[in-house]
Design a protein around this nucleic acid. Structure first.
Lengths: 193, 193
DNA sequence: GTCTATAATTCGATAGAC
DNA sequence: GTCTATCGAATTATAGAC
């Protein structure tokens, strides 16, 4: 390990790398994995396509870097048990609207095996983990988290990907009032009622 | 309009056309629109790739033919109002499992604008229509149908596309018992409870 | 009706000059 | 660190022989 001459000096390449990542997220979110080309991403970032390869090695490597994502799920042990559903759906809506990385991951996961694997990992590592924090029967934890994922991802799919008009137009607050009870039941309720 | 010499004689090409459609649905369902190539589809159908072009004109034309789909939604006016949710989720699960056309449409809709447009049409023409048959306030019909679509498509996405383990392993009957109340509330209930 | 041959693009990736 | 040039492979689509 040889220390660099100027340890914390920001390199010129950092700005380029960041520009590439930003453009990559946009393209992957808008077009999916296959249709988003390195050439188009480079053009958006105003750099040469070969720079993308130099910094990220391959298209897969670029996607892996661009799809790095933390759901930043709230600590549910600090939330009143009756408000799990509402807190979660509010959090997800804000997270989806504010960061297109999730849309990129969702679109790519439909057709790219690597992206699907990444989404499974994100689900297992972050959502299942969050659901485990409060005292759920461990035998049902994964299933409850899966049901939550089905409603949350279906909401994202219809609102941001396929863009069904009623789901695009609906007021976020009304969305919360419809979906919060669903998530609440998936997390703390029993089936059949 | 000149009548053919043998009006109802099955042509040899009909079998070829059917084989192409079957292979196309499989490939589109498994790989999505971009990764499913005409060459691979033709190989599956044991015919020459140029036949696909001859019969369907283009890749888009082939997809349009392969993604033709009727949800065959049941007549809800013949169902007790308290069982809308259960009837619907049972119907959807059976439909998804029995016909891969829906998976093909769902995967393709993530990345292909034409497929997304087709899915919006299927939603508007079939699901919204079915929800309109019973006496729902017309002002909320489209929104209720959209919410149902969000849960049903999210279920399909997590179970058949991304294949989250808990959603793949869960027993269909248990899935019904969890999701039926959700759809019931989206169709006939009020938000917030 | 079926196939061969190929045109016309486009893409990811590499080599190397500066 | 950035760019030019290009390779090799794969794709949709077309033209035309049989």
């Amino acid at each position: 390990m040889t220390a660099p001459a100027h340890p914390n000096r920001p390199r010129r390449s950092d700005a380029t790398r960041a520009a590439i990542l930003r453009a990559a997220r946009e393209r992957f979110a808008a077009d999916g994995y296959e249709r988003a080309t390195i050439r188009a991403i480079a053009a958006d970032a105003r750099i040469d396509p070969s720079m993308v390869m130099r910094y990220y090695g391959s298209k897969e490597g670029l996607f892996a870097a661009a799809a790095e994502f933390d759901l930043r799920l709230p600590d549910l042990t600090a939330v009143p048990p009756g408000q799990f559903g509402e807190v979660l759906i509010r959090h997800f809506l804000a997270r989806w609207e504010g960061d297109e990385t999730l849309a990129a991951l969702l679109r790519a996961a439909s057709t790219n095996p690597g992206a699907a694997e990444r989404m499974r990992g994100l689900f297992a590592d972050q959502l299942v983990a969050a659901v485990s924090t409060f005292g759920t029967d461990p035998a049902t934890t994964a299933r409850r988290a899966g049901l939550v994922a089905s409603q949350v991802l279906g909401l994202a799919f219809t609102r941001y990907i396929v863009r069904l008009p009623p789901m695009v137009d609906v007021d976020p607050e009304e969305l919360v009032s419809w979906v919060a009870p669903t998530l609440q039941r998936y997390l703390t309720g029993l089936p059949e009622n």
